[in-house]
């Protein structure tokens, strides 16, 4: 029974990462972290039972030093836990070297939401529809988590465990995301289907291809809205590796996708429709990646 009214909670406003980690350790499963709050606030307003509500809400508003987007040609891209989608879009290097992520950010929601929502919040929400999540899955990367015992890094391939659940432990704060440095033959692209731009995706896809001429040396393909978490299309990837990207190869790649995904019917689309268009959307993303150079 949602009222769209915020329930009662205690607000915690830590001033540093160590203080935030202490609070997480003290309150564990009774606390929710809030970065931009665009998911957290909506979830609290729509809560169906008191059991879904946290006793403590910990806002990162006063934690300094986490709002960075830093590019280094040798080390890659580091995105701090408080960096917003708008701040990501403002970085010319993101557009140049991480085009899939830049396109996911550009088509993401609305100006107001982009000004508030964080890139890491998108990963931590662990929604199968997350646009930045899809792009980052294809690009590859690691999430840095800070806990009472120190820092550890989790590969994005091991990050999402099930719907809404990540490898983050209750006493860990996500502090940054690290994307690999751009490689010479690397090409990437992101595409999504929505009813209107501000709506969540009914299907999204991102690709990263390592090309030598017209031959695909390696591929990472990610698709969203087709499983409980963002999905790597590992079987379809094998159809690309070591192949020249001819029309026939692209056709076989597109034909393989519906067999590898497990979509559901929901208010944004049907499972059948998602299956029908999935291969075409992937094919177009591959073509865009190769054309974009």
């Amino acid at each position: 029974m949602s009222s769209r009214i915020l329930p009662d909670f205690e607000l915690l406003l830590p001033q540093s990462v160590p203080e935030a980690v202490e609070l997480l350790a003290a309150h564990r499963d009774r606390i929710t972290v809030m970065a931009g709050g665009t998911d957290v606030m909506v979830a609290m307003k729509f809560a169906q039972s008191p059991a879904q509500l946290p006793d403590y809400l910990m806002s990162l508003e006063h934690v300094p030093g986490l709002a960075y987007v830093l590019f280094d040609p040798d080390k890659g891209l580091r995105i701090g836990a408080k960096a917003t989608i708008a701040e990501l879009l403002a970085q010319a290097e993101v557009k140049q070297h991480y085009r899939a992520l830049w396109n996911a950010a550009r088509t993401f929601a609305t100006v107001q939401v982009r000004n508030t929502a964080t890139v890491l919040g998108n990963l931590l929400r662990a929604s199968p529809a997350g646009d930045c999540s899809c792009a980052i899955y294809a690009i590859g990367g690691t999430v840095a988590l800070q806990g009472p015992a120190g820092r550890r890094e989790v590969d994005i391939d091991d990050f999402w465990l099930s719907y809404g659940v990540t490898a983050r432990r209750p006493d860990e704060l996500a502090v940054e995301l690290i994307l690999p440095p751009p490689a010479a033959g690397s090409r990437c692209a992101f595409k999504r289907m929505t009813r209107t731009n501000e709506d969540l995706a009914k299907l999204n896809v991102a690709v990263r291809l390592e090309m030598a001429g017209n031959t695909c040396v390696d591929a990472r393909l990610a698709m969203g809205c087709v499983a409980p978490t963002p999905l790597r299309l590992t079987k379809t990837e094998t159809l690309l590796k070591g192949r020249e990207l001819t029309a026939e190869v692209l056709q076989s790649v597109a034909a393989s996708v519906p067999w590898e995904i497990d979509p559901i019917d929901d208010k944004r689309s049907t499972a059948e429709y998602r299956r029908q268009v999935s291969g075409v959307l992937l094919k177009r993303a591959i073509q865009e990646a190769c054309g974009a150079a």
Partner: peptide
């Protein structure tokens, strides 16, 4: 009340538009 319509828009600091319905 859920960030979709923009009726609650305000400008923050140097002119950044945000949804006041999603801001504590």
């Amino acid at each position: 009340g859920t960030g979709e319509c923009g009726a609650c828009t305000v400008l923050l600091e140097d002119g950044k538009a945000i949804n006041s319905c999603l801001t504590l």
